[in-house]
Amino acid sequence: QVATSTVRILGMTCQSCVKSIEDRISNLKGIISMKVSLEQGSATVKYVPSVVCLQQVCHQIGDMGFEASIAE
């Protein structure tokens, strides 16, 4: 089973930030795809909930120095 959710990301300033986040999160087990939008300050994450949760994704992004939260 696959889920798609949006994560809000604060602190991104350039495409390099976007690429860094996409590269790191895409390597997590259970992540199918991730598309980060600098303009919208968010990311669309396609993932397998039984393998990885959005809290883990937000935590990983937080470790990179950005502020991440699950969009309502």
Rank of each mutant, 00 (worst) to 15 (best):
Q1S: 07
V2N: 05
A3K: 09
A3N: 12
T4G: 04
T4V: 13
S5E: 08
S5V: 14
T6D: 06
T6E: 10
T6H: 11
T6W: 11
I9H: 01
L10R: 14
L10A: 12
L10T: 13
G11W: 05
G11T: 00
G11A: 01
G11I: 07
G11L: 06
M12C: 06
M12N: 02
M12F: 03
T13D: 06
T13R: 14
T13I: 11
C14N: 05
C14S: 07
C14K: 00
C14I: 05
C14A: 03
Q15M: 14
Q15H: 14
Q15G: 11
Q15K: 10
Q15A: 11
S16R: 13
S16K: 14
C17W: 05
V18W: 05
V18G: 06
V18H: 02
K19S: 09
K19A: 09
S20M: 15
S20H: 09
S20N: 11
S20P: 03
S20E: 15
I21H: 01
D23F: 09
D23C: 07
R24C: 07
I25Y: 03
I25Q: 00
S26H: 08
N27D: 10
N27V: 11
N27I: 12
L28G: 02
K29A: 12
S33C: 08
S33G: 05
S33W: 09
M34E: 00
M34C: 10
K35E: 08
K35I: 08
K35V: 12
V36L: 03
V36P: 01
S37D: 11
E39K: 08
E39H: 11
G41T: 05
G41A: 14
G41K: 12
S42P: 03
A43K: 01
T44A: 09
T44F: 11
T44P: 00
T44W: 09
V45W: 01
K46R: 06
Y47C: 05
Y47S: 00
Y47G: 02
V48K: 08
P49G: 03
P49D: 04
P49R: 06
P49N: 04
P49I: 07
S50E: 15
S50Y: 06
S50I: 06
V51S: 04
V52I: 15
V52S: 02
L54S: 01
Q55T: 09
Q55H: 14
Q56C: 09
Q56N: 09
Q56I: 11
Q56G: 04
V57Y: 03
C58Q: 12
C58I: 15
Q60D: 10
Q60M: 14
G62N: 15
D63I: 12
M64K: 02
G65V: 04
G65T: 02
F66R: 03
A68T: 10
A68P: 05
S69C: 10
I70S: 06
A71R: 07
